[in-house]
Design a binder for these strands. Structure first.
Lengths: 221, 221, 221, 221
DNA sequence: GATTAATCGAGACGGTACGTCTAGTCTTTAC
DNA sequence: GTAAAGACTAGACGTACCGTCTCGATTAATC
C-alpha cells in the first residue's frame, strides 16, 4: 500500500502553509482524536471543535491543513492503513494487512474466497467499520470526497482482483472475452452493498457462495 | 406499491399529536419543499428551517410530525412513489412505474436486462438521484433510518427479482440449488455500487453485460 | 370598594362575544390559576398556556375575554379584593378589609400610622406582594395598563387619605393652604418606593417615622 | 460618577471568557443598539436577536458577556451616564451632568428645588425615560436586577441628598434627630412614584411644593 | 547562539441552524 | 354559540459549531 503522507507542497505555492514546519505531534494527535471520536460518537456528532479539543490543538491547526471534517477523517483512515502496513512489515511479516497482490495458488475460487473472507472479518470489526462507513456515507453525497475515497481506498484494492482475474484468464480458468473490471463486481459489490446498506448479514459462507455463483453462473451447464 | 401514508395512531397513544387534525395541505407542502430543496441545494445544505420557510409552515409543524430531516425526506420520497403509482393507475395504465412483477416473457436474460435498463434510466435522472442518494447516504450511517430505507424502498423491489428468478428456476433456466436472494445481487449490487460510490459509470451496455456474466458465469463452459 | 365584575357589554358591540353565555366557572378557574401561577413562578414565567392548562380551559377562552396576560392578572387581582370585601361583609364585619374611610379618632398622626401599618403588613404578605408587584411592574412599562392599574387600584385608596387630610384641615390640624393630594405622597410614596424598588426595608417603625416627619417637617420649629 | 466598565476578571475565574480579548467595538455597538431599540420599540419588543442584528454582532457575543436582556440594558444605561460624565469633564465643565455633590448655597430649600427641577427635566426627556423606565420595571419583578439597579444607579444619587441634608443639620437648618436617609424620601419618593406609576403629572412647581411641605411639615406651626 | 518568521494553542468573533417554547389564530367536535 | 382541545404560522429563545480572525508563546530554520 502506498504511503499516504501528504507530499511536500511546491515552494511556489505562496498561500499554503510551510509543510516543513508542520508539527508531527499535532498531526498524530488529530488523527487519533478524529478516529476515536468517530468510533465513540459516530460521524455526525464528531465536530472539528471536538477533534481540536481532544487533540489539544487549536482549531486553526486543523483548518490550516485540512479542508473539511471528511478530509481529516479520510487522511486519518489512510494513515491507519499505513500504520498497520508498517507494523506488519516491521514484524518481518511478508504478507501484510493489505497485500500488493492476491495469492495465486492456481485455484481461483479458493484464492478469491480467501480474500473475501478476510474482507468480511475487517468489515465486522467496529474499529474499521465506523470510520469506513462514515467516509463511504459522506462520499455518497459529497462527490469530490467520494472520488477521492474511491481513488485512494477502493480502487487500489479492486485492482488486485483485476490482476488475479487476468492471471486466471491467461491460465484458461476464466473466459477470455470477460472484462475483469466488471467480473470482480459480481462478488465484491454484493458484499459491499450488504455491508453498506445492511440489506442482509454478511459471513464467510455468504462470500463463498458468491464466488461459486459468479464463477459458474446461474444457468444450468 | 403500498400506500405509505402513516397509519392512524392508536387512541391510547396519549402524548402524540392528534393525527385526525393534521393539516394535509401542510404535509404536502413540506414534502414538496423538502424534495425541491434537496434537488437544488443537496442534502447537507437543506435545513429544516429552509423546508419550513419554503413550505410556508411553522418549524414546529415539522418537529411535531417528523423526528429528523432524514425522516421528512424519507416520507417525502415514499410519497413521491405513491403519487407516481396513483397517477399511473388513474391513467388506466396497466404497467405502472414500479410494477408488481417483472415481466416474464420466458426469456430470463431479456427480462432482467429490461428492468435493469429502466433502473439505470431512473438512477441517471437527477429528480430521483439527489434525494435517493441523500437517503442512502444517511442510511449508511444512521442504522435505524437505514433499516427503514431498506425495508420500505429497497426490499420490495428486490423481492420482484426473487419472484422472477424462482419462476425461471421452475422453468429450468436457473439451477435449482441457487438461492435467488443471493443470485439477484450478482447483477443488482454492482449497479448499486457503481451508482452509490461512483466507482465507474453506469449504462445499458453495462447492465446487459452484468446479466450475461451472472447467468453464464465467468468460467469457461 | 366597587365590584370589579366587568360590566355587560352593549349588544350593538357585534364583534364581542355574548357575555350572557359566559361560563362563570371558567372565569373563576382562570383567576385562581393566574394568581397561583404568579405566586409560584413569578410573573414572567407565568404564561397564558400555563394558565389555560391549570384552569382546564382552552386558550381561546382566555383570548376571548381578555386582551393580555396583564389584563387577566389585573382582573384576577381586582376580583381577589372584591372577594375579600364580600367575605368581610358577610361575616357581619363593619370594618371590612379595605374600608371606605380611614378611621377618624381625632388624632391624625395615630390614624395615619394605623393605615400605613396595615399597608406594610399587606405588602409583606407574599400572597399580595407577588401579583401586585407584577402588575405594578407591567404598568410601569405598559402605559395603558398602568393607567388602569392606578385608576382602579391605587387612586381609590389614595382618595381615602385625601378625605382624612381634608377632615384634619377642617379640624385645624393641617395648614389650610396644603394640597392634600400632594401631602399624602409625603408618607405614601416613600413606602411605595421602598417596596417597589427595594431601596430599603419597610416596617411599622419606618412608616411611623414618615408620618412624624411629614406632619412636623424637617426644619426646626 | 464612577466608571462602570466591568472590572478585569480574576485569572482564577477559569470558565469565564477572556476579558482582555473582548471587542470594544462590539461592546459599543451593542450598547447603542440596545438603547435605540428600547427607545423605538419599548422594552418587551426589544429582543436579543434584534440587538445582535442591529449591532452587526453574533448572538453569542451578547450571551458571552451578559446574562440577560435586562443586564445588557443596565450596562448600556450605565455607560450612557459614564459617557455623559466624560463628555462634561472633557468640556472642562466643572459641574458635570450628575455632580458629585448637591450645591450648598446655604439655602437648603433652594438647593433641593434646583436638583429636583433638573431631575424632572431628565425624567421628561424620552431619551432617558424609556430605558430608565424599562430597567425600573424589570427591577420591580426581577429582584437581582432590581438590587443592582438600585445599588448602581439609584443609591449613589440618593447619597448626595444625604450629604446635603447632613450639612443642613450641622448648620441647624434641619432638626438634629432627623434621619437624612428617610428625610430625603419625603421629596424624592413622591416624584419617583408620580413618574414611575403615572399617578399624576410632574413639574417644577410640583417638586418645589414637595420641598416646602417636607421642610415645614403639614401641621400648623 | 541569536534572530526571525511561521506554526502553535487558545479562544473571541460574525454567523447559521438547531430544537424548544410561547404567542395569538384557526379549526374541529361536544354540549 | 360558547367551550375544550389542540394544530397551525410565526418567531424569539439559548446552545452548538461553523470557519475566520487575532493574540502571545513556542519552535525550527537561518544567520
Amino acid at each position: 500500500m502506498a504511503d499516504h503522507t501528504p507530499p511536500p507542497r511546491t515552494p511556489d505555492d505562496s498561500r499554503r502553509p510551510d509543510v516543513s514546519r508542520r508539527s508531527e505531534k499535532s498531526r498524530r494527535a488529530i488523527y487519533e482524536a478524529a478516529l476515536s471520536l468517530v468510533v465513540e460518537l459516530g460521524y455526525p456528532k464528531t465536530t472539528i471543535e471536538g477533534i481540536a479539543a481532544r487533540a489539544g490543538v487549536g482549531k486553526q491547526t486543523i483548518y490550516r491543513w485540512w479542508s473539511s471534517k471528511a478530509d481529516v477523517l479520510l487522511e486519518a483512515f489512510l494513515d491507519l492503513g499505513d500504520q498497520a502496513a508498517r507494523a506488519a512489515e516491521e514484524a518481518g511479516y511478508a504478507g501484510e494487512r493489505e497485500p500488493y497482490a492476491i495469492a495465486d495458488t492456481g485455484d481461483l475460487a479458493a484464492d478469491l474466497k480467501g480474500v473475501l473472507r478476510a474482507t468480511v472479518d475487517e468489515l465486522l470489526d467496529p474499529k474499521y467499520d465506523r470510520p469506513y462507513r462514515a467516509l463511504a456515507a459522506e462520499g455518497v453525497v459529497d462527490e469530490e470526497l467520494g472520488r477521492t475515497f474511491v481513488a485512494k481506498l477502493l480502487e487500489p484494492s479492486l485492482q488486485l482482483y483485476v490482476d488475479r482475474l487476468r492471471a486466471a484468464q491467461e491460465a484458461g480458468q476464466v473466459r477470455p472475452e470477460v472484462d475483469p473490471r466488471i467480473a470482480l463486481e459480481l462478488f465484491v459489490s454484493p458484499l459491499a452493498q450488504r455491508w453498506l446498506q445492511r440489506t442482509a448479514p454478511i459471513s464467510h459462507a455468504y462470500t463463498d457462495t458468491l464466488v461459486d455463483y459468479a464463477l459458474n453462473g446461474l444457468a444450468p451447464r
